[in-house]
Every structure is written in C-alpha cells, then in structure tokens.
Design a protein around this nucleic acid. Structure first.
Lengths: 203, 203
DNA sequence: TTGCCTATTGCACCAAAGTACAGTTTTCAA
DNA sequence: TTGAAAACTGTACTTTGGTGCAATAGGCAA
C-alpha cells in the first residue's frame, strides 16, 4: 500500500516501515494542506503538545481515510479525533501487526478502536441499554403507548408533523408532544434517528 | 485457520466457506458444551429465536475467542453478546471479506464491532459507506457528484448539518448547498425522505 | 481562451422541528 | 374516591433545516 505518513519531522519509525514498507513520510506544517498521495489511508502523527484541531482539518479530503498515530493516546483524545472524522487512532509506536490490522479495517471502510476503549464503550452502553431502550424496532415500539406507536410509524414513513396531524385529525402541537415523549423513551434525538431505528437501516 | 463454526444444524454456508475454507461446522444442542477445536476463534451462529444467554455460556473456554454470527443482529443483541464476553458479532450472512476482517482483528486480541454501532458508541460519529445500498439508492447516488454522495450518505446515516460540517471541515452553509443540490437531483423534499431512499426503507 | 461544472461560502430569510411551561379531560386500577 | 397515565392542546420560544441571492476559485474539455 502506498499510504503516506504525515508528520512534522521527516523520520520514518521502524514499526511504520515494518507495517508498510512502501509508505513515505511527508512533512507538514501546522495549518498547511498536504497534497494527497496514492494510498487510501493518510496516517497522521500527532505529537505531544500538538492539537488535533490544528493538525487534522486540512488533511481531510474526499476518498481518503485518516488514521491518527498519537504519542499520548488517552481515551478523550481518541474519541475526539474519531468524532472529528478520523477512521482510527492508535499509538505512534504500535506494533506493526496492529498497524496492519488498522489498515485492513480502515481500507474496508471500517473504524478502528483499541480494545480497552471499545470495551469501556460497550460496557457503558450495554448498561445504559440494559436499563432502558432496546434498538430492535419491535421492542422499541413496545415502549410506546398506542398513539405514540402510531405517530412513530408515520414519522418513520417520512411524514411531516403537519401531515400526521391532518391524517390523525389532531393538532400539530399534539404530534410534537407525542414525538417528545417518543424521543425520551427511545433515546433518539430527532425524527431522522427515530426513522433509522424503526426501519432497521444500516447494517 | 482451523476455526470451528458452532450451529444447531450441520450446514456450511457459502460465505463461511469462502472466508475460512478449513473450518468445520460443529453441531450443538442448547445447553451442551462443545469440545473446542484447534482454531483460536469459535464462531457461533445465533439463529432467530435462540437466546444468547442459553447458547454462549457453555462455549467460553480459556484461550479461545467467540464471535457470534447472528441472524438478526440488532444493536441491543450485539452489545449484550459483547458485554457477555464475545469478541465480535456480525451478521450470519456477512460477506467473506467481512468475516476475514473480523478474524484478523479477533485473532490479534481485538474486538470487532460493526461500523454503524461503533459510530453510535463514539457518539454517533458518522462515516457511512454505501454498503447495503439498494439498486435504487445505487442509481440515486450515481446522479450525485462525489462530494454530494458523501454528504448524502452522512445524512442517511443520521447526521445533522453541523455534524457533517465538522467532520468534513467545511461550513454548514456548504453542507446545505450540497443538500439543496441533492434534493433537486433526487427529487426528494427533505433529509428524512433522502434517508429513506438511500437506505431502501419505506416508500 | 472560454465556458461549464464542482466546491465553497456569506448574509438574510422563512419554514419546520423540537422544547418549555402550563393546562383540561377521560379512563381505569387501587 | 383518588391518583396516575394517556391524550390532547395553547402560547411562546430556540434550534435546525432549507432556500434565495450573490460571490470566488479551481479543474477541465472544447
């Protein structure tokens, strides 16, 4: 793979070379755009003291994935760079096997997250889900009253609040009240997310 | 790899064979222990109606990783089996490439989570591929420029304009401009309808 | 060189979605 | 009889979505 490794110093590390012998280190300065190379993945080193908000934005280009190699990859940083659009984040000195694993996942369009952080996310989310909503639309809809179910299905079918109000012969305000209750019970934030959950869209 | 696939029927699926030609399907009955094979991974099919709490516990043995192949892998199920100790969970009929990706990650001690769920775990960050797109959504997306496709997929994955702007490092106004063009080209009236078309749900 | 397409962006505006506070009425189990 | 839940609704507000007008700049084929 002809990936590039973007760093503020032009020094190839041994684990990088072992993982991707064909890659090149490309220099960057803060704030500067770097011309994309041929590979699908743009590896970007984040040194201690460098802010991802300064480093990453110029690097995002269509059709390329960014993987961050962080010198100090604490959980908050990892989540931040992933939330900012990076497809993975691991330690600058990660083993070549790990870097290759990251490359495979990311090249296939996946996101790569370290195991320990992922387990934390899973544990936290499993506990949250265990206390409340499930994602399956059947059991999701079971949380709702009869009228709420009716409104939820209509939203999932693409209807606006006004259309729902007209069809059910109720006020638009009433539709909004039902939706607010639906959002609270299901843990979704808006009608688009509700539709995705009910329709089972995605995987 | 000499992994085993544990199922209640002794029937190898084509995607399983393609992903791991040396694997065997091993029969199990509910509640029964299955002697571990030589491989590191024990793939366990979870059919519709089968409860993971009945199926998985006898399968956990030291030194082996369990990956669940679920017929109906909704988010709650995936999180439950991961919280219960499985190292991955994907669709029974996942593509061989996906199964191989799972195998690589898990054999190296990682956890494998589907992209959509992972994005939810990361706080609903979104990078949605066109995986699972219908023919309609395929031809729909062909109408769009590269950047419009990117924006459209992110909307279909549930992202707000602000989130898309942040992830692509562009202005929210630019996202809206792309969406206006997308709506014109596809003939939909808003992001909810766009999401339904791309995800192949509803009308 | 020219014209078209794509990408980007600002300012301004209106419409729709969603939230907050508050209220009434009906049904039904305790 | 009482209290809770469900259903309904108004007024008012904030946030987000979407549109209109206008503009610059780069890439590329004719």
């Amino acid at each position: 793979m002809n990936d590039e490794i973007i760093d503020s110093e032009a020094r190839m590390l041994p684990n990088w070379r072992a993982a991707m012998p064909a890659a090149n280190v490309v220099l960057r300065s803060v704030g500067n755009r770097v011309q994309p190379g041929a590979g699908k993945i743009r590896w970007c080193r984040l040194r201690a003291g460098e802010k991802h908000t300064d480093v990453l934005p110029p690097l995002f280009v269509p059709g390329k994935f960014i993987v961050v190699l962080a010198d100090q990859p604490d959980d908050a940083l990892i989540l931040d760079v992933l939330a900012a659009g990076a497809a993975g984040c691991c330690n600058t000195h990660a083993a070549p096997e790990v870097l290759q694993q990251v490359a495979l996942v990311v090249e296939n369009g996946g996101l790569w997250v370290g195991q320990r952080l992922l387990q934390q996310l899973i544990g936290n989310t499993a506990r949250i889900l265990g206390q409340g909503a499930t994602a399956e639309s059947g059991s999701l809809l079971e949380l709702l009253s009869e009228r709420e179910r009716q409104v939820a299905r209509m939203v999932a079918g693409g209807a606006s609040n006004k259309e729902i109000a007209d069809r059910l012969a109720i006020a638009e305000r009433t539709v909004k009240a039902h939706l607010t209750a639906i959002f609270e019970k299901t843990g979704v934030r808006d009608r688009l997310q509700l539709s995705l959950k009910i329709n089972g869209a995605g995987r």
